[in-house]
Write a protein that binds this DNA or RNA. Structure first.
Length: 426
RNA sequence: GUGGCCGUAGCUCAGAUGGUAGAGCGUCCGGUUGUGGCCCGGAAGGGCGUGGGUUCGAUUCCCACCGGUCACCCCA
């Protein structure tokens, strides 16, 4: 009985689930490599300003106090990262990656923290795989990020995923659109829910993805961002769509797709799996051409995506996709204390040095053979090596193959090679 | 931050119109001399989420709080 519990919204990932994590992360690393990305680590904690200026003080991370921020004794405010991109862009600037061959393609994997109320598929600590392409305006970079997103899921076994794609414009064209939208929605304010009325004041764009179905028609008739894009944004969007079409990659234009982080420009997209619950977004990303400037650097265009590892794992399980549970064949060393224990220990380490998974039956005082055999069975040992007094007297050990029950006497100093041969043969 | 549902052993769950709790699984030990998976026996493990209130007495009634879960919000 533990008296101290896990913090709200935190997760213990047990061995069974960890298999899914390994599968997802292995695939992410594999794909990132094939796409030419290099892995970096960035700190879990950054200065508060990185996120207030990067993510944007108008975003809900700030207004709803969803970040874990602590004020140090000297007054510095430091924050547990609520997302990856700002830190990666900061690292790009600080480490002079502007002088590397462009674009720079890097990714990071690790936890991020947001103090939200937990829900199906939503946790206060969650882990992300986060690739970014920095230093190019080419919409083919947007395509590459989207292809990486889709293919990661595809190669993991996901079926029937479609992209939700939209453009969110840029500082040139977006404000005009927001004005128009606000005007339109204000004129119909009376049919908005209280929540949406609140959003109308704070962030009218968010009404587009309101879950209030009674305003679906209202929104369908609302001004569309695509009709307001400036030439630059419109061309970018058209080019990206052309690439997707030419590569036969299906996607759904979703003009109601808006993202909560302020730094996005032009392309925004998500990949959904509705079976997870209300939190359907497996990954979300887009372009952020103004972020580097916002945190004090030169203008560096960028595009990236964040994958929620927990959500992908949940989705895989719901689709009955199994993570590999194959165990390395292993050996259990059985002994009866005294000299037999010493010999068993010696053999255990010798086996391990030779690449054979092995474990010794732990016991402060000698345990019965039956008990130790049961342990071998429970741990699904492939072999048991019995080191008893009789065997030691003859310089031998008894080796039992658990599945067949076949048992042989082997010279002690040949035990490791005997098992190696058996393993190689099978 | 708001709302619905839930809160009995590690897990899945029983339980009494209020008299201080059980099962299955799991774990550990054992079933004659050093041998597993089946079977059998035994043990450990819970002041029934926490704190108040009502009562002679509450795990069972009431309230609050905490936690879990789902949804809103927001997001991966």
């Amino acid at each position: 009985m533990t008296s101290i519990d896990r913090l709200t919204g935190m997760l213990d990932v047990l061995p069974e689930d960890r298999l899914y994590w390994d599968m997802i992360i292995d695939k992410a690393i594999d794909l990132a490599g094939r796409y030419g990305f290099q892995r970096i680590n960035v700190p879990i904690i950054e200065k508060d300003e990185l996120f207030s200026r990067g993510v944007g003080e108008a975003s809900d991370f700030f207004v709803k106090k969803e970040m874990y921020t602590i004020t140090e004794e000297d007054g510095n405010r430091i924050t547990l990262r609520p997302e990856f991109t700002a830190g990666i862009v900061r690292a790009y600037l600080q480490n002079g990656m502007v002088n590397w061959p462009q674009p720079v393609k890097i990714y990071s994997i690790g936890p991020v923290f947001r103090r939200e109320r937990p829900q199906a598929g939503r946790f206060r600590e969650h882990s992300q795989f986060n690739p970014e392409i920095l230093g190019t305006w080419d919409p083919a970079a947007d395509l590459e990020i989207m292809m990486l997103a889709r293919n990661l899921h595809r190669e993991l076994g996901y079926k029937n995923l479609t992209f939700q794609l939209n453009s969110t414009g840029c500082p040139v064209c977006k404000p005009k659109y927001v004005d128009e939208l606000k005007k339109y929605l204000s004129a119909h304010q009376q049919i908005l829910s209280d929540v949406d009325k609140e959003r109308l004041k704070r962030n009218p764009l968010r009404i587009l993805d309101s879950k209030d179905e009674s305003i679906d028609e209202l929104i369908a008739d609302a001004p569309h961002i695509v009709d307001f894009l400036c030439d630059d944004c419109a061309t970018h969007f058209a080019d990206l769509r052309q690439y997707l079409d030419e590569l036969n990659q299906p996607y759904a234009i979703n003009f109601r797709l808006v993202r909560g982080i302020d730094y996005y420009t032009k392309t925004v997209f998500e990949l959904w799996d509705k079976t997870i619950g209300a939190q359907a977004s497996l990954c979300g990303g887009g372009r952020y051409d103004g972020l580097a400037e916002a945190i004090g650097g030169p203008q560096v265009p960028g595009v990236g995506v964040g994958f929620g590892i927990e959500r992908i794992a949940i989705g895989l399980k719901k689709q009955d996709i199994k993570a590999s549970t194959e165990l390395m064949p292993s050996v259990l060393l059985i002994h009866f204390g005294g000299g037999t224990k010493t010999e068993a220990l010696r053999l255990t380490y010798a086996l391990r040095e030779n690449g054979i998974a092995s474990r010794i039956a732990f016991a402060r005082r000698p345990r019965s053979m039956r008990s130790q055999m049961r342990e071998a069975n429970r741990h699904q040992a492939a072999f048991v090596i019995i080191v008893g007094e009789d065997e030691i007297a003859k310089g031998e050990v008894a080796i039992r193959q658990m599945e067949s029950g076949e048992q042989s006497s082997v010279q002690s100093n040949k035990a490791v090679s005997w098992i190696s041969e058996k393993l190689n043969a099978s």
